[in-house]
Structures are given as structure tokens and as C-alpha cells.
């Protein structure tokens, strides 16, 4: 019953956010002044009602690139950014919402950044979370940063895809679900993708969820994606995981969102791959024939031994 009420609350929040987006002044009555309220609200997503954080890159050159984070389906004034260098005094910083979202600065150490947005009311806490990666040589191992407690209810990637890698369809990835640092056993987790998949699954005895990302890309979508220089890092579709837990009269809802790509063999042909390798092998095969006038290979050695 409680679960249903929370889902209804989310839906209501989404509707109110949608209305606020259409009529920004309506929202200003309940929001603190000094910020752009429309941006704080975020736009409701058509594909999900769960709270998510969307990252967007803008700027023509590498030097002028700006990363902005837009919360969607959640009402927040700040976004928390957690750098993977825990010793840095600026490792945890609050990003203030602006017109196009909160600007994410690149810390000197680069690497993985955990981003969380928290909305708290008297009877519920909602958290949206995601990860952003800045390519940087020698970046610290982010495991400790991921494991650091940031909110009561958390979904933690185990691990998050490293550089040159990403979540992809038809792959299994693990996530730890915990409440106040304790793993949640048999915890229900909802999974949704912008391609329309919806799955409900449970954590295991260690509080770990093994998620099989479905291959739900439509052929048209694959064409759109193009085949340019992608490094396997291009945006494909969005995914979100969410879980809910009630404790001490409060209901906690936490979501973790990211992007995922088509499966590993998308626009690849394994049979042709082996075929061309075989062709190369056939080309080298004459080298394996015995020479007609085979010399004794160790003549020189024997001769030298006599020296």
C-alpha cells in the first residue's frame, strides 16, 4: 500500500513539475528565490516517472565545453558532486542550479564523479543519482568514493564501466543496494529503459542486484546512431534503476540512471571476422612448407663449438 502511495506521489510530482514548466510563475511560489525555478524543477520525462539526472555537453571546442546536469522528475536546488579523490578538500561540492542545469566543473584529478540530487519532505526522501566520467590520466580508483555513504538508500554500481567501456545491451552488470550502509536482501528494484523495457527484479543475499540489460534497440534506432567514430561511448538509450524502502515513518526512493548502448555485436559481423582471419591464415600457409633444400639449422653452432 505504501509503495503505491509513493508511486502516486511521484506521479503527482511529475504532473506538478510539468505544470510548473509550462507556468514558471506557479512554481516560484514554493521555491526559494535567487535561482532559475524552471531549471530546478526539471522537465518530466516521457519515458520514466522516476527521478533522474541528465548530463549534457555544450561548447564548440574542448576548452569551452560545459557539462550541465539537469534533474528530471525531482525538485532540487542543488546537486551534490563527489570526486573520486577523497583527500581533496573539494571532493564533495554542491553545484547550484542555473538556467540550463547545474554546471559540473572538472576537478584537477578528473576521473569518475558521482552526482546525487536529494528532495526531502516530511514523509519521503527521493534521490536521483548518476555517474559522470572525465578522462584524466592517473585518476584515483573510484571504488572508495562509490562506497562512501551519501544518502540513506543507495544504488551503487559494482563496478561502473571504466574508460573505453559502457553499459551495453545483453550484458550483466551488478549493483549494490543498501540502506544506511547495510545491504538490503531480497529488495525489489525497478528497471526501466527509454526504449520501453520495464523489469522488476530482486537483490540477492548480499544485497547485490545482477541486472541483465535487455537488447531493446529497434532497427530504426540503430540506423540513427550512425557508424562514425564512436569508441563505444556514444549515447544509445537511457536506463534507470529505482528502489524504495520505508523506515522510521519515512519512505525513501532512490534511483540511479545512466546510458547504455546497443549490444557488443551491433554493426559487427563475427562470421566475416573469422572469415578474414582465415583468409590471412591461408595467405601465410605456404610459409609452413618444408624448404626443399633444408639446411641443418645448427651448423653454425656446431662449427663454432669447434673453434
Amino acid at each position: 500500500m505504501k509503495t503505491n502511495s509513493i508511486w502516486m506521489a511521484i506521479l503527482a510530482a511529475s504532473i506538478s513539475v510539468a505544470q510548473a514548466d509550462e507556468h514558471p510563475m506557479a512554481a516560484s511560489a514554493v521555491m526559494p528565490t535567487g535561482h532559475d525555478h524552471t531549471a530546478m524543477m526539471g522537465r518530466p520525462m516521457a519515458w520514466t516517472e522516476l527521478p533522474i539526472l541528465k548530463t549534457k555537453m555544450s561548447g564548440k571546442t574542448r576548452e569551452t565545453t560545459v557539462i550541465s546536469i539537469a534533474p528530471q522528475n525531482i525538485v532540487v536546488a542543488n546537486i551534490d558532486a563527489w570526486s573520486n579523490n577523497l583527500k581533496d578538500a573539494n571532493a564533495h561540492r554542491q553545484l547550484v542550479m542555473e538556467m540550463a542545469g547545474a554546471k559540473l566543473d572538472k576537478p584537477a584529478t578528473g576521473g569518475f564523479q558521482m552526482l546525487t540530487a536529494r528532495e526531502e519532505q516530511t514523509d519521503f526522501v527521493r534521490v536521483a543519482s548518476t555517474v559522470y566520467y572525465f578522462g584524466e590520466r592517473g585518476a584515483k580508483n573510484p571504488t572508495a568514493m562509490f562506497m562512501q555513504q551519501k544518502n540513506e538508500l543507495e544504488i551503487i554500481p559494482q563496478p561502473y564501466p571504466r574508460e573505453h567501456s559502457r553499459y551495453r545491451a545483453d550484458e550483466d552488470w551488478k549493483f549494490l543496494v543498501r540502506f544506511k550502509g547495510q545491504p538490503l536482501v531480497n529488495q525489489k528494484v525497478n528497471f526501466e529503459t527509454s526504449n520501453g523495457s520495464k523489469v522488476e527484479t530482486l537483490t540477492d543475499a548480499a544485497g547485490v542486484l545482477t541486472l541483465h540489460i535487455p537488447d531493446d534497440f529497434k532497427p530504426v534506432e540503430e540506423k540513427k546512431e550512425g557508424a562514425s567514430h564512436d569508441h563505444g561511448m556514444r549515447r544509445g538509450a537511457d536506463l534507470v534503476l529505482a528502489t524504495e524502502y520505508a523506515d522510521g515513518g519515512k519512505t525513501y526512493l532512490t534511483a540511479f540512471n545512466s546510458t547504455y548502448g546497443a549490444d557488443a555485436y551491433d554493426k559487427r559481423n563475427l562470421a566475416m571476422g573469422f572469415g578474414f582471419a582465415l583468409l590471412g591464415m591461408v595467405g601465410a600457409a605456404p610459409l609452413l612448407r618444408q624448404k626443399k633444400t633444408e639446411k641443418k639449422v645448427d651448423t653454425a653452432t656446431d662449427k663454432k663449438e669447434e673453434v
Partner: peptide, 9 residues
């Protein structure tokens, strides 16, 4: 791939 196959043999 052809270069890989050639190299292996």
C-alpha cells in the same frame, strides 16, 4: 583480421 590471421600462421 587478415593481418591477424597471417601473423598467427
Amino acid at each position: 583480421n587478415a593481418m591477424f590471421g597471417f601473423m598467427i600462421i
